[in-house]
Every structure is written in structure tokens, then in C-alpha cells.
Design a protein around this nucleic acid. Structure first.
Lengths: 335, 335
DNA sequence: AAATCGACTGCAAGCGGTTGCCAAACTTTG
DNA sequence: CAAAGTTTGGCAACCGCTTGCAGTCGATTT
């Protein structure tokens, strides 16, 4: 006796039992204003009694609305995405939608392939930290409904945490501690964020009269930290901004292994304020943002369910505030 | 011009273009042996040229097979689940299936509601660390196909990491360091694992001649650590086994805040070896298991795609090995 | 009282595939 | 060369729900 063999009642069963046509059942359940109140009550009562559940597939087939959205993340093991995933899941559920999760493993091709594969099963895509090129994304926009997180492409809705202003906060913080130069341990070549962050760092450092050097790229993971740390030491730098917290944590470990004192000899800053940033040693100074909110908003943008309390933004490109969390990994520049 | 307005070609388009019936197209694409090779090639070529993509909804409707599975986790922000999620996602994709993610936020009711809501859209459920009662799960089994992770219920397929043997490793380790008693900082009252772990701890401790005390329950999260740490100190214990690494890390922080030296004054052990267990301070001694493998296997069990290289187990209840990772948070008992 | 108008509800045609059954075409066999 | 057996491919009936169109019937208007 297989569980799946058991047949669920359909609107035909309900219709027969209630003595009406299936169309009436359908309308009573989805479009209540369209049928007489008494009829509706009877239909609802019968449906209830029979344990009727509308079949989402059959519902989606004629209408084309699957009430399902896909969330694509570039690396599911990166804690940075937790907040995004949770926020998206919550908001999707609140909107009566189901969330499909797709791990694209840092590969633009897998990303595109997954989207292709899932189109048809979903109403749209939220793509977090896409590794695809602007052009690829542009082409996709013509065929699918999509929203970006941590990425901006002209004409595509997106939510992003304010990394420009955040970078300013980071560099002002380092400058105020007396650092005269910064190193950026860069993320993947494909990463749009890495490019933007480097650009922001260079611009703002110049404005504040600091020198800026870029090293890398390094894999944005803990294991990338050793090489990044060694390269940084090779520069004789006093402060390093890591592409993200994973890399920063990896660097902290390497510095510790090499008996380089943080922040005494070198200050380290990360981005994202991920799980663990507060209890690594020393605790990491990092740029925090509301990523769960980014996930929620991205779903809203996708579904067009954004509440009216937020001011609309140009091109639906939302920028969320960021703030620097200063912890033990940054300190005065060595003299 | 909405992206979704663009119509995808259907088998009707392909059939017309190739000069065959839709049934032939369908067979050529899904049941290649059933049509002539030449016809098949032509159909495939036309489908290719038109950019035909089979509509998964339409395909699922008659067959009832959605090629989609749901993964329910009790708390999506708990890094413990990362491995499970990633493993499940990989295996599902390998089996040509799509993964739906459902966060049940530690609530048995939300868990049941989500399952009810998703039934009809999925072929089955993988439920990780279910908070439901054995009875609830038993009832569900009658209606849905499901597989459990980190939970055993008679008659339901499951994968679990060997916590009994793992607990033995933990207690032998503590005993070998000279500890004469252990405290268990328990997880949620609803947690099946918490009950099992306590049972294992008590049994094994008795066998080795150690005293065992249970404290709690505490929320299995970092924030639960402060209360757990304080309660443990109140017991004058020299070793504490936390319900999971999150709790353990929270305890480490509290001990640090209260200037209680770990492992000098007290040793701390966790379960799961989550992200962060290796870089908290001191690094955490914890029981590691292959949770990604648990996720993969659960999907296999669910879909019936388990490869034959593994020996079948009674009732399809797979137990994966665990091993203790000794780090800095455990040391000799204070004299 | 006849004509007009709404409010309900039913009919039936899809949505895009799958599949049992059957007939035509082709092969093999005696 | 006819009979029997195999392929091959088309017809049509679903899967369960939505929705445009039209018919029914009591209520309102003139």
C-alpha cells in the first residue's frame, strides 16, 4: 500500500457531492464573489468534509502561475546566504508561494543551466551574487522574470546592501586608526561585488589620502585565507580588507599560525558579518547589512507585492543601509 | 512586454513542424525505444531547433510524478543543516529532481502545515530533525512518502549519524582526561535527539563509572549558551557536553565573559562539528559526522535510487559513522 | 404586462503532456 | 506468395482545474 496511491478528492468529487458543476466549485473556492453565498457555503462545507485540497499542478497548468519562486545562490555553504535564504523563504511563504533552492556552486554555467531547467516550474528567479555576466543576465531578463541580490544590472530589479557607503565607513575607520595604506584581498574574478568593492576602496582611499593595493583573486572561502594572508604580509601592509568574512577568518587563522599579531601588527576587516564573525579570534571587524531584509525585498520585487510604505526607487534597485561593526580585529596602526 | 508572455513551443508545435503526431513527439522524447530511429532523430532535431522545453507541470499532471522533493529543516539558520542541505540538493539534482526548501522554525505545527501544503507539489519529503511526535510522523507516513534525518521512527526510512557510538567516544575521551562526572546541557524538550543523547550519556557514563547530570532544556542556539554555562558552573562540573555546537559556542563565550578558563577549569564538548567549531576560542572538541552524506542518502532512500554498493539495512534505517574531533576545549580535569 | 437587466450557474474548450488501443506497414516464416 | 508476427505511429481519452460564453430565472423598469 503505497502512500501515493491514495487518491485525493478532486473538484469533480466535490461538485458531485454538492450537486453543482465543477466550474462552480472552482469559482466558490478561488473567486468567492462570483457565486451565491449559499452555494459557496455548501461547496466549502463539502470540500472541507471530503478533505479536498486543490492540486497545485492542475491549477498552475491553465493559469501559468505556479506560485513558486526559485532562489539561486552561488554557494550554499557560505553562511552569508543564510540570512538571505531565510528572509526569502519567509516572504515567499507569506505570499503563499513555495521556494525552490538552487545551489550554483560558483559556476555561471551551472547557474544558467539551472535557470533554464527550472523555468516552467517557477514564476520567477531571485539570484543572489550571480556569477553571470551582465550580458547573460540581460538576455535572461527577456525570457524570465528575475530579481538580483548583491548585484546591479541596468533594467533589472535588485536589492543590494550599500557597499559603497560601507566601504567608506571601513576606510574612514582604518584612517582614524592611523593606517596610511590598505590592501584589498580580492574575491573571484567573476564577482561583480569584488570589482565594485575594489573600485570603491580605491576611490575612497585616494580621497582620504591612503594608498590602496589589490591582491588576488582568492577563493572567497576560509581556505583562501592562507594565501591571502601571506600575500598581504609580503606587501608589508598594516591593514587588509578581505573580500568577505570567510576569507577574513581564513586570514586570521593564518596570521595566528604565523604568529602575526592581529590587530597589533595588522588590522583585518571583512564584509557581511556572518555567523562566526563575532566569535573568531580576534572577533572580526566587518561590515554588516540586513541580508534577511534583502531576501525579503527581493521576493517582494519579484512578485510585485512590495508594500507601499517604502519609497519606490529608480528602476526598482533598492539599496539597503550597511553599518560597520567594530570588533577586535582592527586597531591602531603600528608605529 | 512581459517576459512570461512569450510562449514556449509545445509538443504541438514540434509535431506540426516535424509532420508527426504529438504522441510520437512525446514518445520520441521520453521513450526513445518506442519510435523509429529516423523519426526520433527528426523529432529531436526539430525540438532542438524550436527550442522546445518540456513543461514539467504538464508532464507531472497525468503521471503524478513531480520530480520534486521537499527538504524540511527545523531551523535554516543553524549551520548544522548546511551539509545536509547541500548534500540533498546535489543528490536531488543528480536524480533529475528539484529541491524545495521548507523552514519549520522549530515548530511541529508549522512542520505539519508545510507538509500538508506541499503535498501535491512534491513526490516526497525529507525531514531533518523533526520536532513532530512519533505518532504524528506515523500518521504522515500513511499519506506521504517520507524519509527522516537525525530521527528514527519504526517503519520509516531514515539516516542518522551514530550518536550512541559518538557519545561513547566523547565520554571515554573525558574519562581518559580524568573527569569523574559530566553535565549534559540539554536541547529542546521536543527534540528526539536530545532525549537519545541524554539516554546514551547516562548509560555510558554509568558503565564507565562517571556521574551524569542533565541541565536544561536550553534553546539549541548560541544565545542559549549563557544560561547553560551559568547552570553548569552552578553544578561545579568539570566537563559539560552541550546538546550541539551552537550551544557549546554560546557556553564558551559565557565562560570567557566570566573568566572561567576552558579547558583549565572546565572542558566543553559539542555535537555536529559545524562551521565555526574550528575557529572559536578555544576551538571546540566536537563529534563530527558526514551530514552531507546523510542528506544525499536521505534523498536516495526517498527516491529509491540508492546504489547497490551499500549494504541494505533493516527497515532502511541507515546509521552513518561519527568521530570525535579533539580540539582545545577539552583538557585534563582540574585536580 | 411586456421588456430589460443582473446575478448565478452550467457547458465545454482548453492548459501541455501521456498512454492504451488499434491500424497500417514492414518483416519473417513456411 | 500468403500467413503470422513486429514495428511504428496516430487517435483520442484522460490528468484536475480555469474561464469565456451563454442560458435560466427572478427582479426591475416602462
Amino acid at each position: 500500500m503505497e502512500p501515493t496511491d491514495r487518491k485525493w478528492p478532486t473538484i469533480y468529487d466535490v461538485a458531485r457531492e454538492a450537486g453543482v458543476a465543477t466550474s462552480t466549485v472552482s469559482r466558490a473556492l478561488t473567486n468567492p464573489g462570483r457565486v451565491n453565498a449559499r452555494t459557496r457555503d455548501r461547496v466549502v462545507e463539502v470540500a472541507q468534509r471530503l478533505g479536498y485540497r486543490t492540486n497545485p499542478l492542475a491549477q498552475a497548468l491553465p493559469s501559468g502561475r505556479t506560485r513558486t519562486v526559485a532562489l539561486c545562490v552561488s554557494d550554499i555553504t557560505n553562511p552569508h546566504f543564510f540570512g538571505i535564504i531565510r528572509g526569502a523563504e519567509q516572504q515567499a511563504r507569506a505570499a503563499g508561494c513555495t521556494l525552490i533552492l538552487s545551489d550554483t556552486e560558483e559556476s555561471p554555467d551551472l547557474e544558467a543551466a539551472n535557470i533554464e531547467r527550472l523555468s516552467g516550474s517557477v514564476d520567477g528567479f531571485v539570484i543572489a551574487a550571480s556569477r553571470m555576466s551582465d550580458q547573460q543576465i540581460g538576455e535572461l531578463t527577456g525570457r524570465h522574470r528575475l530579481t538580483l541580490i548583491s548585484r546591479q544590472v541596468s533594467g533589472v530589479p535588485s536589492t543590494i546592501v550599500d557597499h559603497e557607503d560601507g566601504t567608506r565607513q571601513i576606510i574612514e575607520h582604518l584612517a582614524s586608526l592611523g593606517h596610511r595604506s590598505v590592501v584589498y584581498a580580492a574575491g573571484p574574478r567573476r564577482s561583480w561585488l569584488a570589482a565594485k568593492r575594489w573600485h570603491a576602496i580605491r576611490t575612497i582611499a585616494r580621497k582620504l589620502g591612503l594608498a590602496a593595493t589589490r591582491l588576488g583573486p582568492f577563493p572567497p572561502a576560509v581556505r583562501g585565507g592562507a594565501a591571502a594572508a601571506d600575500a598581504t604580509l609580503g606587501q608589508g601592509a598594516t591593514a587588509v580588507i578581505a573580500h568577505n568574512d570567510l576569507l577574513a577568518i581564513g586570514m586570521l587563522r593564518r596570521f595566528s599560525d604565523r604568529a602575526v599579531h592581529v590587530p597589533g601588527a595588522i588590522s583585518v576587516v571583512g564584509y557581511d558579518d556572518i555567523f562566526g564573525a563575532d566569535f573568531c579570534s580576534p572577533p572580526l571587524t566587518t561590515l554588516a547589512g540586513q541580508f534577511d531584509e534583502a531576501g525579503r525585498l527581493a521576493i517582494d520585487l519579484l512578485l510585485g507585492t512590495r508594500d507601499g510604505t517604502r519609497p519606490p526607487q529608480a528602476e526598482n534597485q533598492v539599496v539597503l543601509p550597511s553599518h560597520l561593526v567594530v570588533r577586535g580585529s582592527t586597531g591602531p596602526a603600528p608605529s
